[in-house]
């Protein structure tokens, strides 16, 4: 007899349940893939580089002999670059987000700025490098200096900082604005006394995350002409520089396996710095979120 009734076919339901279970397994394996790769990457880099990781590695300059090679110039260069990038990108980024969230009229120009920022975020860093090379290094005659590198890096992470700051500002409830307006506060007073204090943790979290992107950034600084062999300590922002990822790249491109192991040692240091920065960002986020 044909089963034409509305009672569902038990076998068909079983098939659907099995299918669902199979699919769940497949999707889970997909998710697991990322974890496995991350584990493989960390284990690989760690076992490869640990032998070269000692105090001398941190305090030595680069060298022709792998066992003497160190990342002193690279660490200092990263610090120098960041000392320019942090103030420049924060001032530009936070100001832009305040303008967009607090002052900007809803018109075509505002939409154009926002669209432009979104697209800027997608421009490959190597293209930012070309911009830095042409504008800062050549046109403004900064040379292949820390200053040129810091400015290029600031522009590169600007879109990310703007997005994070905008989100932090947008999370402030309207009631907070109402309270301040009703007290007779002016717009700027509200920004100073209500918006910025409330948005600071969010802005800070976003800033640290984007700066950690900057710490790992290679291509744009390579274009600026960061050098891979520097055996001195930069003394001013007009000096040449190298940074950790560039140092890693230059070792990785050598044919000798020893230098690749040195590159892995550098990668360990880089990853540790990034983990510290990210942990800091997470701590700030957890301690200050959900206050309203």
């Amino acid at each position: 007899m044909k089963n034409n009734s509305v009672t569902p076919d038990e076998k068909q339901i079983d098939r659907r349940i099995i299918k669902n279970k199979l699919a769940k397994g497949v999707f889970f394996l997909g998710t697991l893939f990322g974890i496995i790769v991350l584990a493989a990457l960390l284990i690989r880099i760690f076992t490869q580089g640990i032998a070269y990781l000692d105090f001398g590695f941190l305090s030595n300059f680069a060298s022709r002999r792998p066992e003497d090679a160190g990342i002193r110039a690279a660490i200092l260069g990263t610090i120098w670059i960041m000392s320019i990038t942090i103030p420049v990108s924060l001032i530009l980024g936070v100001s832009t987000s305040i303008y967009l969230e607090e002052y900007a009229p809803r018109n075509k120009f505002t939409r154009f700025i926002e669209l432009n920022l979104a697209n800027l975020a997608g421009v490959p860093s190597v293209v930012f490098g070309l911009l830095g090379l042409t504008v800062f290094v050549r046109l403004l005659e900064m040379g292949r200096s820390i200053l040129a590198g810091g400015f290029t890096m600031s522009l590169l992470i600007l879109p990310v900082i703007v997005v994070a700051s905008k989100e932090a500002i947008r999370a402030i409830p309207q009631e907070q604005y109402d309270a301040a307006y009703a007290m007779g506060a002016t717009k700027w007073q509200i920004i100073r006394t209500v918006v910025l204090p409330a948005a600071t943790p969010g802005i800070l979290t976003g800033a640290i995350l984007s700066l950690s992107r900057g710490v790992g950034e290679t291509a744009s600084l390579l274009m600026i002409g960061a050098m891979t062999f520097i055996a001195y300590t930069p003394a001013s922002v007009l000096d040449g520089f190298t940074v950790l990822p560039i140092q890693i790249f230059s070792w990785a491109s050598r044919p000798q396996a020893e230098f690749q192991a040195v590159a892995a040692a550098g990668s360990i240091v880089l990853l540790v710095i990034l983990i510290v920065m990210n942990t800091l960002a997470i701590i700030i986020r957890n301690n200050y979120s959900k206050r309203y």
């Binding site: 907070q176 109402d178 007290m183 007779g184 506060a185 002016t186 006394t193």
Partner: peptide
């Protein structure tokens, strides 16, 4: 701004600032 110093307002949902009690009143 002057009008609003002479005419205060209290809202539906309590909306103190995320500051100390003192700083809220002194705002």
């Amino acid at each position: 701004e002057s009008l609003r110093t002479e005419v205060g307002m209290v809202f539906q949902k309590p909306n103190p600032f995320p500051k100390s009690i003192y700083d809220n009143i002194a705002y």
